[in-house]
Design a protein around this nucleic acid. Structure first.
Lengths: 204, 204
DNA sequence: CAATGTGAATTCTTTCACAGCC
DNA sequence: GGCTGTGAAAGAATTCACATTG
């Protein structure tokens, strides 16, 4: 979130920002923000604030943004294709290097410049493209199998959108975005707090 | 997450589950799980565990799942259309009641049974369909405006996928799913921890 | 001055450990 | 015997408040 705020500030030509200002836009306490940033080292100037470009560069460095990150998307259905075309997946170093599906009817079609391959070619693709990040956009029924296949090919970091809990091998990180759960956050607040508080999903 | 695990257990015909078992599959401590569930009241039987169906019903009740939740999706691009067709958005009481876009070329097309309307019809649609939940799947540039429009129409809970930080009116809850940030979680771990730990995004 | 970085205080969360119950 | 629900302990995170610095 800080990264996105700083990027926006940079675009607007702001060169310096104080912890109070950033914290205000982020919706957090200023002391919390300063402590968060202190984990990256000391980058602020007392009396002035933080230099936007420098802080942004430091965050990008910590997140390893800017390095080339080839991705494989498993599942070329609606969601898989939408992700392959989405902004978040095609900027900031991310690059959809491969798309796989089980359905032979999908194989061969081109999505945003990338050809859909059969899932059996996964190992070869991962090898050839040096892929380390996997995205699962399959139905729930296929997710477990796909995660296992990815792990066997050496993909150690996986983002899944499949509506099911997957139990990954021990050395694989699986991060789950659950669309239904995200909506349930809203229904919970709608039903209870008849909302009053502000919010905004953080992400360091 | 607990909800999803319980639903899966129910489908498999499991009728009773202990906190240790559930905690194991969820990847959390058993005491944590018991305290989490205790917020919903006392539903376990000492010596036996939790009755799956009863606990699931209680969670659904707390989240107000099962009630009818008509949704409007703003933005009928790749992501908006994929969401309109996705499982998470069309099950568990959620129902895509309206789809709007600024682009006249999109207006009139049918996505998964719902007609795309022009964004100017938003107020009428929200009124007619009794919509309380909004989903933003527009480019970053349009997100702020759309959130404001939704708020003006009386939509108080909004889930946004737009790659930008939006500052909502005070009585509106905006929940943000940031695809780039989700990927950055993975790159961070890839670059640093050369991963070892397990994970799984919680959602209560 | 104005605003950082951080000890110290506070508040919240997680975990232990066990009395009570089935 | 086996497992829940929860006081009490341990551990984290947040926030205050201020000495320090450009």
């Amino acid at each position: 979130m800080y990264r996105r705020l700083l990027a926006t500030a940079a675009i607007r030509g702001v060169s310096t920002v104080s912890s109070a200002e950033l914290a205000e836009s982020a919706g957090v306490n200023a002391a919390t923000l300063r402590r968060d940033l202190s984990h990256l080292g000391s980058f602020g100037t007392p009396g002035t604030g933080y230099e936007v470009a420098r802080l942004l560069a430091r965050i990008d460095d910590a997140l390893a943004v800017g390095r080339d990150w080839p991705i494989v998307i498993a599942g070329a259905g609606n969601l898989g294709r939408a992700l392959a075309r989405s902004r978040g997946f095609t900027t900031g170093g991310f690059r959809v290097a491969a798309l796989v599906d089980v359905d032979p009817a999908q194989v061969g079609s081109i999505v945003n410049g990338t050809r859909v391959s059969h899932v059996d070619e996964l190992a070869a693709l991962v090898e050839r493209e040096s892929i380390t990040l996997g995205v699962v956009a399959t139905p729930a029924s296929a997710a477990g199998d796909v995660v296992e296949r990815l792990a066997r090919c050496g993909v150690r970091s996986i983002l899944t959108f499949a509506p099911t809990v997957v139990t990954p091998p021990d050395d694989v990180l699986v991060h789950h975005v659950d669309l239904a759960a995200e909506l349930q956050v809203l229904t919970y607040y709608s039903a209870h707090h008849a909302p009053g508080g502000r919010e905004s999903k953080a992400s360091a």
